[in-house]
Amino acid sequence: MDGFLAAAIVASMPMMFATIGEIITEKSGLLNLGVEGLMLMGGIMGFVLGYETGNPWMAILGAILAGGVGSLVYAILTISLRANQVVTGLTLTIFGAGFASFVGKTYVGLVVPPALKEFFARIHLPILGDIPFLGPIFFRQDPFIYFGYLVVLVSSIYLYRTRFGLNLKAVGESAASADASGINVTLYKYLHTCIGGALCGLGGAYMSLVMMSSWQENIVAGRGWIAVALVIFASWNPVKAMIGSFLFGGLSILGFRLQSMGINISQYWVDMLPYAATILIIILSSRKNKKENQPPADLSNPYFREER
């Protein structure tokens, strides 16, 4: 059982990074549908740099830069040039997939060098790792996952407990009001789109560097889209994003566990569960109609000061 839950944490990590990335992006009022593409770009650049240099930090830097630069292009197009966000995001997804195939052509099937494998090996955390039940699930994982916990913590504090986070919220809810109150709207939008993109890139890199520890064609395989859906599931809250990814990650491997144990439940039923759960939760949260469960009011509206 705890073996399964520990594996579920691993399976949830790529989606968790991407979901939090997309939450931060959407909080600034931008709907970036390029998550899938950004994950692929981060995945391949992290892998290429890690493979060529043998240095884990370079790999991480590569993933952050790839995600950041990819979303910077998106930001220029949508913020400064006010291109349609949906179309630009979709283009970014197609671009990212092509970019990753193109760059990754000669890397398919290659495995990360031993130095990286060692660096990303599982660490049994002292004290925490010995907590019964919870220890083996949460605290005997690889350092990338511990970094993931940190991202959840820091982004929660940032979004809800700092001035910058509240400013960001204001930008997403009403860019015009935020501008009037002296917040640099354009800067906020640019910065958080790039941070969001970098997190998506990290999610992809987790797949190529740690989870699979090899590069495979189309490695992300739709997880970016699940992340976009998880943002709604999580109602723009990083902690709920972690829970949601854990649920989806767990359910995505639950079917295999049941099959290999010979428990007779059709894979198709298990595959349906996460989506059924999403629908259910969206219905429940919309019934309550709480303000905090709603998307940022200015989401996907381009802001142009002179048009006020």
Partner: peptide, 16 residues
């Protein structure tokens, strides 16, 4: 073909 699914499936078999 889906590398991550194949890996998860393999891990569940190894766990058995």
């Amino acid at each position: 073909g889906d590398a991550a699914l194949e890996q998860s499936a393999a891990e569940s078999l190894l766990a058995m």
